[in-house]
Design a protein around this nucleic acid. Structure first.
Lengths: 238, 238, 238, 238
DNA sequence: GATGAATGAGTATTCATTCAT
DNA sequence: GATGAATGAATACTCATTCAT
């Protein structure tokens, strides 16, 4: 931390998008940022391939770095998983914004859900992060809750157009997205499109039919609750 | 040798429901069977409470037995999980048979799905067994595939009555059931009924509306494939 | 022990040869003796096949008995190994007595050594008992020391005839016999006669040549020492 | 990166005798190498004292290190045993080369055998590695087979001089060396020189007398066979 | 900053031995 | 007496995390 803060060399893309975020707001030094990316990329590969059982040593090695370096960049394994997830969430956010421009609100929503589902279905590591209550959960919960508000616009338009059940909340969309992942997990690599069956059912279920549709039971989760629900659960290890 | 072999009152199906099955066909000694049950019960509690992170030592202790005894009855942790799961599957099977008697086919199907969902949603251990590709998976996969055919009757009636999408297969029902569990996991103990929202959506999605319904994409998984899909997935430990 | 002592039904072969020896002098009941033999036979097979790593459960199972029964007959695993060894020693003793009748003393001695070597070389379990300081050592040492005196006659004749180094003691013969087993172990099943090379060298070394032969260094081990040397060594487990 | 790669004074043979060899060719960091040596030394002591029953935890403790460190350096217990053995083999090799310079070929051979025997006889751990088919065997077998060719020179000279039985092969020498260890084991710490009696016999047996000597039966083991013979033997654990 | 060595609590599993049935 | 169920200390090995180089 005795390092002089680097300057202006952060180009136009800046610390934006994938974001460095070293805790305080300061952007990372260029090489540090490069390592961060390498680690993230390696983690994605390694986790996708072997699940979260993979060691941080494995990740480090795949990144061509020492473990120590990984730990300098991410306080612990969960933080890495979390970062991985956030990166993806960012992508989904952009996707949501883009689909919000679709002419037909329902098409926009459906398109978002499908694209988002596919994105996750194709990455086993992410799928596991989403589904298993083991790793990086707190962070995942946070990330998940961050997605919610970004989707609100998409949701509102569809709701207003009368094509979507009126009481579907952002948290329900998140839940839907994650539910599709079980199907993806079941399909595995042997049936990589299997999730689409469940997806179709869900999509139909979300749509409001002319004859009207019953209210969903209970209340949706608030952004808060979405984050808390899981974040607080302390599992011994694993 | 002063122990007379199983008495005449043991019907053709043997000692009922959960069954002993020590490898060969012989039923377990009475005390052994009692302990087997104790272990299963303890495991249910412990896993439900702390997830599969819990040690077999913990389970043994909770059962008031030594670890060795657990290992005598179940070759390893996965086997225990599997047994737990099978027990539950048996319950679901019976549930399915019972619901098949409902006057309205759709009510029967919906009733089964709801009851089954609730059963699983209330047990964190089972939920994990269902969702995470880590523990006792091969066996769980088998158990899962065993459920499929038992549900077929229920399914057929609903299909015939025109209330169900015509191309919903048993494997889709299993997938549905498992998908609901993600919602349960998200809701956690703080929102124990949260899964009902997704459940409602799914149920609506499964129903065939007067205006007809589009075919589900791709093909359902055969019983074979359902079992294989997971059984073959080799995760290094975890 | 509240059992009435069985009588006369011990036939002409009696408790002789392989000997029952239940601690006190009383011969075993007929069925007990039968079990004892079964166990011994099973142990021989099992150990020969898988080494001493084999479980007592395995032995019991192979004998068609429960472990408890094995423990009723032998206080612990080492005792079983010991008994196995003693049985064999008995055989060797008889062999020694028989060879003592050979016309040529040297031939008698050599014949004994060869036959004895072969006997042991063919049984992996015994070989291990002899060579590894792990199992049943105390007992093996005792057994070993018991062999020594039985061989003395054979030895004396050869010595007197001037064909044997004059200072070869019984303990040296035992050592020789055991040394051959390393060669057998090295040869393994792939080269089952490999031990004969070492055997030939040893035999030549034991013979006294016309030109005389140097004294062996140090003193031979007494029967006592032979037994003690190893018997006292306490190895933690294994 | 502030650690300059190995300096110029590292001769072509690298950091001397026992060598680091961390898998790839890179030499170990200085501290790592120091600990490696510590482990080896501790293992020698501990094994010599208590046999292979000793735990790696024990070894680690004796070395003043954590178990993890031992496992970082040696994949498992057998690997450690193997390394220990190799180290010793290296010593024997050097010994052989040195004795090859002796004026009288027979003296050279005998000197080597005696020194080698003593070296092993004094170390219970090594003795066990040599004799019991349990631990680190594959590696030990390899090490053993590596010794064979190094001894060939010594052997040839003795053979040429007519003092050695003409058909003694390197594998026979290895066998001899190991056979002596049984005697050492029998003598134990109470009779530390007991092995010399068997040694004397063997040496005499190896010598070719004026009156000629019979051929050894069968064929010696090739280097290949020597290694294979043991390496292939699969013992279930122990 | 980067590296990789060190750490050691934590886990699944085995098996000799005891004891209730 | 026979059986096999119960026991739990013991052991090898892993991996997240820290820290000296």
């Amino acid at each position: 931390m005795s390092e002089p803060p680097p300057r202006a060399d952060a180009g136009p893309a800046g610390p934006a998008t994938t974001g460095p975020a070293p805790g305080d707001g300061r952007p990372l030094r260029r090489d540090a940022e490069r390592n961060r990316r390498r680690i993230l990329a390696a983690a994605r590969d390694v986790f996708a391939d072997r699940g979260f059982a993979a060691t941080l040593d494995d990740v480090a090695h795949a990144a061509g770095l020492g473990v120590g370096t990984v730990y300098r960049r991410f306080p612990d394994k969960d933080a890495l998983v979390e970062a991985l997830f956030e990166e993806r969430i960012t992508g989904l956010t952009e996707l949501a914004e883009q689909q919000a421009l679709a002419e037909d609100p329902w098409t926009g929503l459906a398109g978002f859900l499908e694209a988002a589902s596919k994105l996750m279905a194709d990455d086993r590591g992410l799928r596991q992060a989403v589904m298993s209550p083991h790793h990086g959960r707190a962070g995942v919960a946070v990330a998940r809750s961050q997605l919610a508000p970004r989707v609100e616009g998409l949701l509102q338009r569809a709701r207003d157009s009368g094509q979507l059940r009126p009481d579907v909340a952002a948290s329900d969309l998140v839940t839907t997205l994650e539910a599709v992942q079980v199907a993806a997990e079941i399909g595995g690599t042997a049936h990589p499109e299997h999730w689409r069956r469940l997806f179709a059912v869900l999509l139909d279920g979300l749509r409001c039919r002319p004859e009207g549709c019953a209210a969903l039971p209970g209340a949706p989760l608030s952004e808060q609750e979405l984050a808390e629900a899981m974040g607080l659960r302390k599992t011994r290890r694993h």
